[in-house]
């Protein structure tokens, strides 16, 4: 395949105080086998050669498991491709002549650090509020020694696949973190090791989520559609159910 000639519309912003703006870059002669981030590396090298400041963006493992990359491409977090992070998105998905809009993950809760980098530590604070088990649960072989229903084990495993990238928040029309919180809560609530603290965990994580100022879920399932790990919105239904039960138990106990 011939190399691509693209136009990039990139959000540039010096720091949190700066007024950001969209700037236009030519991305000429991009190989189709490059990943989206490699394309940005190529563009950045050219910017640096010309004496400019490169486009700042978050990235780490570049193999889809760390949850660090966080670009909104043409309005969709991680791009139009389903079930992949932006580091796994390849330039063969684009056509020569395309104009690509690249923006950060938008939410009031994620302060912008620079260009396309945002501070997602609100998600860490939610996990710190209840996304853990208080006791030692042993090593890997101890987990295998516990009988766990297959359906529950699989549901917990699927929820645990969440890499905490915040694409769900970025895609949600209301900037809600429900898919993230529900996955982190479900992953422990399903399992016998996590079940004894289910009520405490559910209340603490939802309260921290509300405290951070995320929006409210309106059941539009944009989160599920963009999630690179394809976390199911079933987890949100479960969180709603668990929260109602936990609130009731707390009120009457």
């Amino acid at each position: 395949m011939a190399n691509l000639n693209l136009t990039l519309k990139v959000w540039r912003q010096l720091n949190a105080q700066d007024h950001g703006r969209i700037e236009t870059y030519d991305a000429k002669d991009i190989p189709t086998e490059a990943s989206f981030l490699e394309m940005l590396d190529i563009v950045n090298e050219r910017i640096v050669e010309d004496g400019g400041e490169p486009i700042h963006f978050d990235h780490d493992c570049r193999e889809g498991i760390c949850g660090m990359c966080s670009l909104t491409i043409d309005g969709v977090p991680h791009g139009q491709d389903r079930g992949v992070t932006v580091c796994q998105l390849h330039m063969r998905k684009f056509k020569s002549g395309d104009t690509i809009w690249i923006e950060p993950f938008r939410s009031k809760v994620f302060p912008l650090l620079r260009d396309l980098m945002v501070d997602r530590s609100a998600l860490d604070r939610i996990v710190a509020a209840g996304g853990y088990i208080d006791i030692r649960t042993g090593a890997a072989q101890d987990a295998n020694a516990l009988p766990i229903e297959k359906d529950k084990a699989e549901a917990a495993f699927e929820a645990a696949a969440c890499i905490g990238c915040a694409a769900c928040v970025a895609a949600c029309k209301n900037s809600s973190a429900m898919l993230f919180v529900s996955a982190k809560a479900a992953h422990l609530n399903y399992l016998p090791q996590g079940a004894p603290e289910k009520q405490k965990r559910t209340l603490a994580m939802v309260r921290q989520m509300d405290e951070e100022g995320f929006g409210n879920c309106t059941n539009q399932y944009e989160c599920e559609a963009v999630c690179p790990k394809e976390i199911s919105a079933d987890n949100i239904a479960k969180l709603n159910r668990d929260y109602a039960i936990a609130s009731f138990k707390e009120a009457v106990s």
Binding site: K9, W11, G20, I22, T72, D74, G75, W101, E103, R106, S107, K108, V109, K173, N174, S175, S176, G213, F214, G215, N216, T218
Partner: peptide, 12 residues
């Protein structure tokens, strides 16, 4: 609350 949670809209 939902409107407030995204203070800057996407350009596209």
């Amino acid at each position: 609350a939902n409107r407030a949670a995204r203070n800057i809209e996407y350009q596209r």
